[in-house]
């Protein structure tokens, strides 16, 4: 795979497995290395382990076995390492998860001020820049409940960008949206990819995945069934299971 020669990998995942306390094996010996500026899209049926994979990358879930290294920092039990990694990895959730008791501006200011120790004024300058980027500058003083789903998700993206992360994780960022709002969020993600942001994107939007993804991986039952360039995976899947899945969703 020419795209991710080892030395410029920003995330290296080696042989991780994860079994939940209830006995569900969500990840089974998964390895991948993700290059700087690469967009990796993750597809697979419901319950196949896509979210779990993503959540392992910023430490929201701990792995039972294997290692994850992000930008040279091992994601282990060392608290300061984990904190460093969370600063470098932004995450966008299906349900937006904006803080409802804070305005849009406060949502984006918070991490800058508390994690980076930025002054209120400087944080707000950055927040406004980020809001401009997602086209919501004028909503800085609104509360999340006053925004549409698409607008909330764009704010959530701006918030995840607030610490200037090197990697962005998207877990079905458009799945909770009304169809007419999906486009505005995908546009923001497209623009981010074009800027050269490293992204790991779990999505059911196959057209978008094929268009924006450099590589794509099909997960089933916690295993990476097929990992290839996005074009190849969507146009000429080699594994039967990938073919079966794609024929259902396309």
């Amino acid at each position: 795979m020419s795209i991710s020669s080892h030395h410029d990998a920003i995330i290296t995942v080696s042989g991780i497995s994860k079994t939940f306390p209830n006995g569900v094996r969500a990840l089974d010996d998964v390895s991948v290395s993700i290059a700087r500026q690469e967009v990796l899209v993750v597809i697979g049926p419901s319950g196949s382990g896509k979210s779990t994979f993503l959540r392992c990358l910023n430490g929201l879930e701990t792995v039972d076995r294997g290692t994850i290294v992000v930008d040279g920092i091992p994601l282990d039990h060392d608290r300061s390492n984990r904190l460093e990694i969370r600063k470098e990895v932004g995450m966008v959730f299906q349900q937006f998860n904006l803080f409802p008791h804070m305005t849009v501006g406060e949502n984006i200011d918070l991490a800058q001020r508390r994690v980076r120790g930025t002054s209120a004024a400087d944080a707000r300058t950055v927040s406004l820049e980020l809001l401009a980027k997602v086209g919501l500058e004028e909503r800085v003083d609104s509360y999340p409940a006053r925004l549409s789903g698409g607008q909330q998700q764009r704010v959530a993206i701006a918030r995840a960008l607030a610490l200037r992360p090197k990697v962005m994780l998207f877990d079905e960022a458009t799945s909770a949206l009304d169809p007419e709002m999906i486009g505005e969020v995908l546009d923001v993600m497209r623009a981010l990819a074009a800027e050269g942001m490293t992204m790991v994107v779990v999505t059911h939007e196959m057209g978008f995945a094929r268009e924006v993804g450099d590589r794509a991986v099909f997960i089933d039952e916690g295993r990476f069934v097929e990992l290839a360039s996005a074009q190849r995976l969507f146009d000429a899947p080699r594994e039967d299971r990938t073919r079966a899945f794609l024929s259902k969703v396309l």
Binding site: R86, N97, R114
Partner: peptide, 15 residues
């Protein structure tokens, strides 16, 4: 408070 709020706070690197 919903789990999503915890996760967002965690993902943002808050102590």
């Amino acid at each position: 408070v919903s789990r999503g709020q915890w996760e967002a706070a965690y993902a943002l690197g808050l102590s």
